[in-house]
């Protein structure tokens, strides 16, 4: 039996690598996932991201409808458009998931995050920290003679910017809630 000629030297790609067909740039998307508030539901969602190698940049979850036993998970993720589409389809497949909204593409939305910053220092740095906190409309929610805790709410970029400014001024610790988001308008 004759064997077909094999072309030598052609580069091979892994069949698991989606890049050759979908070479788009990664994008960041904010997804709102409405789920049954039942044990294990968060594990299902997180397990999906871990198991399939998707990114989680930020994740928040809390019950939003007590009588309907519904929770809202807001997850910020990055990936190529195809990966984002996969993530949404895979989330939609989970039996406990009622709806998946991509707030990044479904019209305008509002994104907010709350963060606490512990800043320690004395003298000029301490004064500067207070002054900047004022500009950012951050509240001092705890203070000692050597430190402050500032509370700041805003879009994630604003939180990032404030953190950058506080770093040289004695930033010790940051706690962030992760993003909560809603689409704008009456819908």
């Amino acid at each position: 039996m004759s064997a077909l000629k094999i072309k030598k030297g052609s580069t091979s790609h892994s069949a698991y690598n989606l890049r050759p067909t979908f070479s788009d740039e990664p994008e960041t998307h904010t997804l709102a996932v409405l789920v049954d508030n039942e044990p294990g539901v968060l594990a299902r969602v997180i397990g999906l991201f871990a198991g399939r190698g998707y990114n989680i940049e930020s994740l928040t979850v809390a019950e939003v409808d007590h009588t309907g036993h519904m929770s809202r998970i807001t997850v910020v993720t990055t990936g190529t458009p195809q990966v984002i589409e996969q993530i949404k389809a895979q989330l939609g497949r989970i039996v406990s998931v009622h709806a998946v909204h991509d707030l990044t593409v479904e019209g305008a939305s509002v994104e907010r995050e709350l963060a606490l910053f512990k800043v320690a220092g004395a003298g000029e740095k301490r004064v500067e920290a207070l002054r900047l906190a004022d500009i950012f409309r951050a509240n001092a929610v705890d203070s000692t003679l050597e430190s402050f805790i500032f509370e700041l709410t805003g879009a994630p970029e604003k939180i990032d910017a404030f953190a950058d400014l506080m770093r040289p001024l004695g930033l010790i610790e940051v706690a962030r809630t992760g993003v909560a988001a809603l689409s704008r308008g009456a819908e």
């Binding site: 064997a3 094999i6 072309k7 030297g9 580069t11 091979s12």
Partner: peptide, 25 residues
């Protein structure tokens, strides 16, 4: 790691047919 039209048919030519890129799969 090969396309459909580069199929092996018989006993011949089976040495080293899977190259580095395909080998990881």
């Amino acid at each position: 790691g090969k396309p459909h039209n580069e199929m092996l048919l018989g006993e011949a030519n089976t040495q080293g047919v899977i190259q580095a890129g395909g080998a990881v799969m």
